[in-house]
Simulated assay, not measured.
Amino acid sequence: MFLRWILWLFFIMEELQARHRKEQRDLQSKITQKKRSATKKTRKGVNDECANLERELKERQEQELSEVNGETHTNGVTASETDEAAEESETVEIDGKGTSGTEKSTKNFPIPASTEASQDPDSALPTRKPNRAKARLARRAAEQDALIAQAAQEAANLPDLREQERAQMLGEFQKRGLREKEIRADGHCLYSAVADQMEQLGLGLKPTIAHKAVEGADPNKISLPGYKAVRAAAAEYIVQNADDFAPFLEEPLDQYVHKVKETGEWGGQLELMALAKTYGVEINVLQGGGRVEKIEPKAKIEDNGKKIWLAYYRHGFGLGEHYNSLRKAP
């Protein structure tokens, strides 16, 4: 029974941490967009706003984690502290003094006959009762410490998903004659990995992206990061084939396309489909356990080198799902 509770708590924490990572990614995309659109006059205000957003998200996430751990917060005070204060207020101090410091009548605390007969004047004073509230709090704290220790022991015996996935991927790389090019985990990893693969195959990127002219610069020599071109290519294909994508979206098409093209929103299956068809390449996504997800272009291609390989991780990186580029081993 206890193990079932521990596993339930473990999965609740996994889901909460996954949601926190997504909220962090979404906030990072939002902050990036705000800072890019800021002017010299508004930059300080935008920076302050972004700092407040990050602080509020951090505080809320810390509070949610505390609640899962049994430390519910109420106006900055934990529930255990509130209970302690309440129980302390219920404890009667039998010392002849009230809480206000005024002397109270002791007629409600009759002195036993044996005490009355005592020659020692101190023995006539009532005996102080044990503080039951503190005893209960100490007992609860001890029980919670024991549960935490047992949970930590059982959690230590759970499989390390990150290490397992990494070992599986390394085995697959060796088996298939591939080596890994690590891509920065910044929200653009899928697009950066595809750009790296296209560059390795000498296939080039499209489309030519319209951009603001830089004063005094040759417009023919202005270049953008590869991931921007790949993002634009995916967004353009989705717009041109809206009927194929709209049924799978949970938001209006224009908002979705804006995220693909202009923000740090992470890419997935839909974007891979759009890129395979745009560039006319077969995209092979290698996952832990040796599974390969193939996304083919409009027409099945022959083995002419127009295949690209990506490594897909579920557990290997701090912010969650991640793509790396795979090249042929020398």
Rank of each mutant, 00 (worst) to 15 (best):
E15T: 12
Q17A: 15
R19E: 14
R21G: 01
R21W: 12
E23H: 15
Q24S: 12
R25I: 13
L27A: 04
Q28M: 09
K30T: 13
K41R: 05
K44A: 10
C50G: 04
L53K: 00
E54K: 05
E54V: 03
E67C: 03
E67K: 00
G70P: 04
E71Q: 12
T72S: 00
T82M: 00
A86Y: 06
E88L: 07
V92P: 10
G96K: 07
K97I: 15
K97E: 09
T99G: 10
T99M: 10
E103P: 14
K104A: 06
T106D: 08
K107D: 12
P110W: 07
A113R: 15
A117F: 14
D120M: 14
L125Y: 09
L125S: 05
R132I: 12
A133F: 10
R136V: 11
R139D: 07
A142D: 06
D145A: 13
A149V: 07
A156M: 07
Q164S: 15
E165Y: 09
M169N: 03
Q174C: 06
E182D: 14
A185M: 05
L190D: 00
Y191E: 06
Y191C: 03
A193G: 02
A195R: 02
Q197G: 00
Q197W: 12
K206N: 07
H211R: 02
G216P: 01
D218W: 07
K221P: 00
I222L: 15
I222N: 10
Y227L: 13
Y227F: 14
Y227Q: 12
A229Y: 05
R231L: 06
A233T: 02
A235L: 03
A242L: 10
F245Y: 08
E250A: 00
P252F: 04
L253T: 02
Q255I: 13
H258G: 04
T263M: 11
W266D: 01
G268H: 07
L270M: 11
E271N: 04
M273A: 04
K277W: 06
T278F: 09
V281F: 06
G289F: 11
G289N: 11
R291L: 15
K300G: 09
E302Y: 13
K307E: 06
K307H: 15
I308H: 00
G318P: 13
K328R: 14
K328I: 08
